[in-house]
Design a protein around this nucleic acid. Structure first.
Ligand SMILES: Nc1ccn([C@H]2C[C@H](O)[C@@H](COP(=O)(O)OP(=O)(O)OP(=O)(O)O)O2)c(=O)n1
Length: 1075
DNA sequence: ATTTACAAAGAG
DNA sequence: CATCGCTCTTTGTAAAT
């Protein structure tokens, strides 16, 4: 059993796992699984009712699948009658901007056009056709194709402002279309033959090859197109080849947006670089602003504002890019950063792929190999790539995190979401500031609000399929995005696959069983981001009242004003928005609307796939709409709540519950079984009531991030404590980096561990997965708001030791910063500082040390014993928690304060970045992934207590030889630096000098010195010389108090805080000894 | 009565 | 070979204050 023999329980677990993945992707996670299992186990143990439960589980699952099939059935019918999507060419032909298409879309589009226009050679006739089809788009087409899916019909002639094609743009684009068409037709042939191999599942076995080809292909195509254009001067339009020597990459959302910029660049002879590959191609990067991460990545490129393009074109000559250099880069020479970077790369013998952690394991266009011969380089890369492949599956490798995150879909989703939140919050903040005086109160009463929920249909699957070569008939071919192995998750599958019962989150082996012909597509995170940028750019271009990003492919939008303008034709507005988004992205979205968020979300469920749905605002109609909806569709209503509800209603597990029956349950009953908030929410939801706001301006602080964490629950396999602590060091560095990225510091740290459940096999069914686990978490106050890697890692290691988990049983590690404040806004956690006056700090590393060195009975006394009873007890029951068995403390001094190099970066580079952050300006217009400043930019909106000048500098910790020398060893005499303890003033003088020195030094306290110092202090304590001890700490604290503005202040504060906390325990101990 | 620590659930 | 099971918010609960 211990060795992972498949016991009945673990077998059951496996079944449960798989069915859970099927029945509800995303809503049932392992933590929940674990709960479910725990519950089942306990049930089984107490009631001996195993078979019953198993059956129940199965039935539940089947039912769920059935339910979804029904849903798909409806879609299938619709598909049979009429294709739910427009034929690609029809949609694309009405696109007002071909720039939004990717290569394959473009090729297909052009082919269709040239096919339909085969006989007509004149530009004018093409124009006419396109124009008429454009018209069709706005009128007939919506009724013909879309009405099929609309639940409520409306006139197709609605007009939404801002979204119709500009006639000027249209006229400009027409000749290009035709010309590009003939050009590309040829191009496609060549490409198909020379570049692509038709492999069984993947078009390309590896992403790298794929991206290289894609990049090459697009650039080549763009280039031929521009060359072709150059020769053409008809139509009176000229496009001087301003950018002929430029290869330009557009980074994220810009103004004017990426579509327009790309067009401008290509028209004027430039090369567009859609993806940054490891070959240094891009000469310029266009962006509005960049977060530190990308700033380093892009450091050897000329990073310019979009204005450079616009104004160069206006001036009809290439303007000096330096004038448009992105301001944030400021004074640090790009050369210099590049130089540092290159050196780092070479020293580390690293490859750019790992360095940058780009999605397809790609680096930037940083080229470090100029000096190496091709052969040598290839050889080197070969060796490195071998090392890399190990690094990706071994958490002990220093590159593991980077590789893991670069391939993790969930990491990307989370990151995108956080970035979007941050960006839109900043936008809102800027807007609020602008408005401060003219208060443009929007006068729409809640009853008349129209909330739109818009979401791509099977986002990843659609985008990946669009890019796939050979082309996929998306509406008839089952396909899904997955890494491809049997136990790999299906991230997203299309609706064809869903008819077979395939679901997002299901294991691929299962999906394949259900649907043997399913096509497997690779992840293409860059493209998801790119399409998402277009999506949001389009939404922002509308006259919307507010917008709340829900996910990379999903947003809540207040369209009350738009609907008012259109005379209440909500359906028409939705259709237009849908059309607009479909054409711009080459995907399909669905739109649902209602007078509140709840109704909008439910409407979207009805609208999917590829449709729109409007919930009317009449109360009775709302209730009728809700009546037949499954309660499981309510937002926030997952498996666990459903289970509870079933038991509350005394229903079997295989039933569904409609909202109308939920409505029959009294409020009190709901509250008593679900808790006050949840009960009340369910009560209101069942009546269609929901007052959730989506307005970032209404309460900006609410949307400011409150925690920042890192979780790794894959690939965690350690054999020793040292390996774990090494990993924690790297986690700390990563956490610190992310805190820098969003300009925040935090004062509480939480470590969360996943531990193999005793009943789970050693190796779970999923390769390197976490399997069935128990979880423990422990948090600690730092006493100071910080993000210093050294402090974080030290604290994490303390928490790790505290939790006392066998490294071999560890299956996952998470760490999170909890009491966040925006950078520079008050350094000290005053709340906690106050507490320090009265009682020892919460757990700190040094406590551990003391515990280790004290006799065992100390642990039995609550004041000295850090863990509150609850925790200790819980851990004990789960995993033999026994503090007294902890290893002796000899290793403490060498391991406890493990000051690592501050970060992976050279200190000078770090310094530059931080300076840069401080310089950041409020009005810089934010761009997703380009603006990391969550905190600072909206600092002015925070309550005054949280606002303080940000003149306190961050400090570094860096190894440095200080004036300290080796301590002497004497058993009887306490000697510090050759000075006997009786000469206390001398020692103090030395200490203050040392402190002063390190406070100024940007490299901080040298690790060895600190060890020696602590060693000395601990000796004092061990002799019960609390008086001296306290005197020294007080003197140092007082001195430190005068040095608040020094860079080393924070670190010293932390250290002294720890030292201060010790005597309380010590005196207690002494007291104990005396009696 | 609040505040705090921890755990669970739910989302994409 | 595989595989990349993240990360944040909200809520419930029990215990401490
Ligand atoms: N367990 C999950 C759930 C979602 N996703 C990713 C893939 C999806 O494409 C994207 C968006 O999630 P949605 O819930 O919107 O699902 P889809 O867009 O795939 O399908 P649809 O919205 O049409 O139901 O998030 C994922 O990787 N794993």
């Amino acid at each position: 059993m211990e060795d992972g023999e498949p016991t009945p329980e673990s077998e059951k677990f496996k079944n449960f796992t798989e069915s859970a993945h099927e029945s509800s992707w995303g809503s049932l996670h392992d933590s929940e699984l674990n709960i479910a299992l725990r519950q089942q186990f306990s049930k089984n143990n107490s009631k001996k009712d195993t078979s019953n439960i198993e059956i129940a589980t199965d039935v539940d699952t089947d039912e769920d699948i059935l339910h979804y099939s029904n849903n798909n059935g409806r879609n299938a019918v619709a598909t049979d009658i009429k294709p739910p999507t427009l034929p690609n060419y029809a949609k694309e032909s009405v696109s007002d901007d071909w720039g939004s298409m990717n290569d394959s879309q473009f090729i297909s589009f052009v082919n269709k056009i040239s096919q339909t226009q085969r006989d007509s050679k004149s530009t004018a006739s093409v124009k006419k056709t396109l124009l008429s089809s454009d018209k069709a788009n706005n009128t007939a087409e919506s009724s013909v194709f879309l009405d099929e899916d609309f639940q409520i019909s409306s006139t197709p002639k609605c007009k939404v402002s801002n979204i119709s094609s500009s006639p000027i743009l249209l006229a400009q684009k027409l000749p290009q279309l035709r010309e590009k068409g003939t050009e590309v037709e040829y191009q496609e042939d060549v490409m198909t033959k020379q570049d692509y191999e038709d492999s069984n599942r993947y078009a390309f076995e590896d992403h790298e090859g794929y991206f290289k080809v894609k990049n090459t292909k697009q650039r080549k195509q763009d280039q031929e197109y521009s060359e072709f254009l150059k020769g053409k001067k008809e139509d009176g339009q000229t496009f001087p080849p301003l950018f002929s020597n430029c290869a330009i990459h557009i980074n994220g959302r810009t103004d004017p947006d990426i579509l327009q910029l790309r067009k401008m660049i290509l028209l004027h002879g430039g090369t567009n670089v859609p993806y940054l590959s490891s070959k240094g191609i891009a000469t310029h990067i266009v962006a509005e602003s960049l977060p530190p991460r990308k700033r380093i990545q892009f450091s050897n490129c000329k990073v310019v504002s979009p204005k450079w393009i616009v104004e160069s074109i206006a001036a009809k000559k290439l303007l000096n890019w330096a004038q448009y250099r992105l301001e944030q880069l400021g004074e640090y020479g790009q050369q210099e950063i590049n130089f540092l970077k290159v050196n780092t790369l070479m020293e580390n013998n690293d490859v750019s792929e790992v360095q940058t952690g780009n999605i397809a394991d790609h680096g930037t266009d940083m080229e470090v190999n100029d000096s190496l011969s091709e052969d040598k380089r290839a050889e080197k890369e070969d060796i490195l790539s071998q090392e890399l492949s190990r690094a990706g599956v071994d958490a002990r490798d220093s590159n593991f995190l980077r590789i893991f995150f670069s391939k993790s879909r969930l990491h990307h989703l989370s990151t995108w979401k956080a970035d979007l939140r941050s960006e839109f919050l900043n936008k809102a903040a800027a807007l609020l500031k602008e408005r401060q005086f003219d208060a443009p109160k929007n006068n729409i009463v809640p009853e008349n609000r129209v909330i739109l929920h818009v979401d791509f249909d099977c986002f990843f699957a659609r985008v990946s399929a669009n890019l796939h070569q050979p082309m996929i008939d998306f509406d008839n071919t089952p396909c899904c995005v997955t890494h491809g192995g049997a136990s790999a998750d299906v991230s997203s599958c299309n609706y064809v696959a869903r008819q077979f019962g395939v679901k997002n989150g299901m294991w691929f082996s299962k999906a394949q069983k259900l649907c043997p012909n399913i096509v497997c597509l690779p992840y293409q995170f860059d493209d998801y981001e790119r399409v998402s940028n277009i999506f949001y750019a389009k939404l922002l271009a509308l006259n919307i009242d507010s917008i709340l990003p829900v996910s990379v492919d999903e947003a809540l939008v207040d369209i009350s004003s738009l609907c008012m303008e259109s005379g209440g034709d909500t359906m028409g507005v939705l259709k237009n928005i849908k059309c607009e988004l479909d054409t711009a992205t080459g995907c399909t979205v669905s739109c649902g609307s209602g007078k509140n968020v709840l109704l909008a979300k439910l409407a979207l469920r009805k609208a999917k796939p590829n449709g729109v749905y409007v919930v009317p605002s009449d109360e009775n109609q709302i209730l009728r709409f809700l009546d037949d909806i499954d309660v499981r569709k309510l937002p926030g209503f997952g498996d666990r709540l459903f289970e509870k509800l079933l038991s509350l209603m005394g229903k079997g597990t295989n039933t569904t519950v409609t909202i109308s029956s939920l409505r029959c349950i009294e409020k009190e009953k709901l509250i008593s079984s679900f808790g006050i908030k949840t009960g009340e929410k369910l009560y209101l939801f069942s009546r269609g009531v929901d007052d959730t706001s989506i307005d970032l301006l209404s309460d900006p602080e609410k949307y400011l991030r409150k925690s920042l964490g890192i979780d790794v629950n894959w690939g965690i396999r350690f054999s020793s404590n040292a390996e774990v602590e090494d990993f924690l060091n790297r986690l700390a560095a990563e956490l610190s980096k992310r805190l820098v990225d969003c300009c925040m510091t935090g004062s509480m740290l939480t470590l969360k561990l996943s531990i193999r459940h005793p009943d789970a096999p050693i190796e779970p069914p999923k390769y390197l997965g976490m399997g069935y686990c128990t979880f423990v978490s422990k948090s600690s106050r730092l006493g100071i708001s910080t993000r210093t890697t050294g402090i974080l890692s030290s604290e994490m290691k303390y928490l790790w030791r505290f939790l006392n988990v066998d490294p071999k049983e560890l299956r996952g590690v998470g760490v999170s910063m909890n009491k966040l404040i925006p950078e520079g806004n008050g350094k000290i956690d005053t709340n906690n500082q106050m507490k320090l006056q009265f009682k020892p700090a919460a757990a700190t590393s040094l406590h551990t040390a003391i515990q280790k060195e004290l006799p065992e009975e100390v642990f039995e006394d609550p004041p000295a014993l850090e863990p509150p009873a609850g925790i200790g007890h819980k851990i004990q029951t789960h995993q033999n928690f026994s503090p007294s068995k902890r290893t002796r403390g000899d290793d403490f001094l060498s391991e406890e304060i493990d000051w690592e190099v501050f970060d992976n970066l050279p200190a000078s580079l770090q310094e530059e970045i931080k300076r840069e952050l401080r310089k950041r300006k409020l009005q810089s217009s934010p761009i997703r992934k380009k603006v990391a400043s969550t905190g600072k930019d909206i600092a002015f909106m925070l309550s005054p207590s949280k606002r303080t000048p940000n003149n306190i500098q961050q400090h570094d910790i860096y190894n440095l030889i200080t004036p300290e020398k080796v301590n002497t060893k004497d058993e009887n005499q306490i000697i510090f630096q050759g000075i006997n303890v009786s000469e206390e003033p001398k020692i103090l003088k030395k200490l203050l000098f040392w402190m002063d020195f390190t406070l100024e030094e940007k490299t901080g306290i040298e690790k060895k010195d600190l060890e020696l110092f602590k060693d000395f202090m601990l000796k004092l304590l061990s002799r019960n010389d609390v008086i001296r001890y306290t005197r020294i700490v007080s003197a140092m604290s007082t001195y430190l108090h005068l040095k608040k503005d020094m860079r080393g202040y924070e670190e010293w504060f932390y250290q002294l805080k720890q030292l201060k906390a010790l005597p309380d325990e010590q005196s207690f101990t002494a007291f104990e000894f005396r009696f």
